[in-house]
Amino acid sequence: MSFINYSSREINCKIVYYGPGLCGKTTNLQYIYSKTNPEAKGKMISLETGTERTLLFDFLPISLGEIRGFKTRFHLFTVPGQVFYDASRKLILKGVDGVVFVADSQVERLDANIESLESLENNLREHGEDLEKIPFVIQYNKRDLPTAVDLSYLEEVFNPRGVQSFEAVAPTGQGVFDTLKAVAKQVLVELKRGDRHRAP
């Protein structure tokens, strides 16, 4: 649910990072936070458990610049990846404009990725959304680990539609901004196209 404020001349869009537990969603936001100019970012909020697992969400507002005199902000959210937090994940997806699916490249996390992607589809459907119709990119994270599966195999399993995808090592930032820019761009293009634009 994008938001246009004609009074303060702001456009706000919501992007959600989704994926299995420990795949690196929070790390993506932390990296973005650490590399963004102070004036372009708000505070990063992390609602986490005592052991640094996301409990409800991470939230990071960033502004990338102006379009036609409108300050354009992206509200980045992560969901909690642990399986039993599905109800929370569904809440966070409400009103989403674009989704990044962060997959964990390690062979032992293949099934966790599959399960998470299925839950993404289901939770979106419950909000009346369709993963095939919203801005969507895939990030294969943890490419640095020795048990990382071949990219071609991951693409075959997770990306039959051939959406934009990126290899990443979130703690070093590899692929992090490419992923963000790709999804943000898709969101703007979709908003511009506006063919599904309805009154609020």
């Binding site: 649910m1 938001f3 246009i4 404020n5 009074s7 599904r196 609020p200």
Partner: peptide, 14 residues
């Protein structure tokens, strides 16, 4: 999908 909220100047003022 992509419902959009727009807040216009006059509504914002009210």
């Amino acid at each position: 999908m992509n419902t959009q909220t727009a807040l216009f100047e006059e509504d914002s003022k009210r």
